[in-house]
Computed example of a mutant assay.
Amino acid sequence: MLRRLGTGVALASMAALVLVGCSPPAPTATTSAAEPSAPPTASLSDNEMLVAAQASYQDLLRAVSAQYEAQTSDPQSLRSNATAEFAADLASQIDENLAQRLQLLGAPQITQAVLDVRSTDALSAGFCLDAAAVRVVDPQSGVELPATSSTTTAWTVDFILEDGQLIAAGRSSRVDELSDPCD
């Protein structure tokens, strides 16, 4: 039983990190959670683009969380906030975790954002995600698995401008040479 719990804790930690989302030069702007006031366009300021990217990624995290809670994956339902390829990757990760019989409840929250690079039709941003609200439950026993020691992780998320909306095109764990948005 303890061996299974240890394996479950390791898998739960990995699954929480999947829920929680490369890396050019130093950041140029920071912001905290807010909703965009206008649809993202290339004419918006850096800060407005960052706020729009943050709102889009938080919506994507909620959509991924909803799929975990429903115990299903549907890449098409992620398309409003992700490219087709990234949505398919996320759905595949959801399927892998569901195959391990992990039930994740709740979505991570973006606590800080930093703009790394911006062009007229793309941007890269760093996000600090707090997964304290994410619970991992063993569906067979109904037992909530213990949380990892740290609930915050830093991610770099790449966005493209598609049909006037910023959508996520990919993400990677934030590398050491970039500033950590969780600091």
Rank of each mutant, 00 (worst) to 15 (best):
L115K: 00
D116I: 15
D116K: 14
D116Y: 15
D116A: 12
D116R: 15
V117M: 14
R118N: 03
S119I: 13
S119P: 11
T120W: 08
D121G: 10
D121A: 13
A122P: 12
A122L: 10
L123V: 04
L123D: 01
S124Q: 09
S124G: 04
A125K: 03
G126W: 01
F127I: 08
F127V: 11
F127E: 06
F127S: 07
C128N: 08
C128G: 07
L129F: 05
L129T: 08
L129G: 05
L129I: 04
L129D: 03
D130R: 02
A132T: 11
A132F: 00
A132C: 01
A133D: 14
A133Q: 11
A133W: 01
A133N: 11
A133C: 00
V134E: 03
V134H: 04
V134D: 04
V134Y: 02
R135M: 06
R135S: 13
R135V: 00
R135H: 13
R135C: 02
V136L: 00
V136R: 01
V136T: 05
V137D: 05
V137F: 10
D138I: 11
D138A: 13
P139Q: 12
P139S: 13
Q140T: 11
Q140W: 07
S141H: 12
S141W: 12
G142V: 05
G142I: 04
G142N: 06
V143M: 13
V143L: 13
V143S: 12
E144H: 05
L145H: 03
L145F: 03
P146I: 06
P146R: 05
A147D: 05
A147S: 09
A147Y: 03
T148A: 14
T148R: 06
S149K: 13
S150W: 00
S150L: 09
T151W: 00
T151R: 00
T152Y: 09
T152E: 15
T152L: 08
T152G: 09
T153A: 12
T153G: 10
T153N: 11
T153W: 11
A154M: 06
W155P: 12
W155V: 14
W155H: 15
T156R: 15
V157H: 10
V157S: 07
D158H: 03
D158L: 04
D158F: 02
D158Q: 02
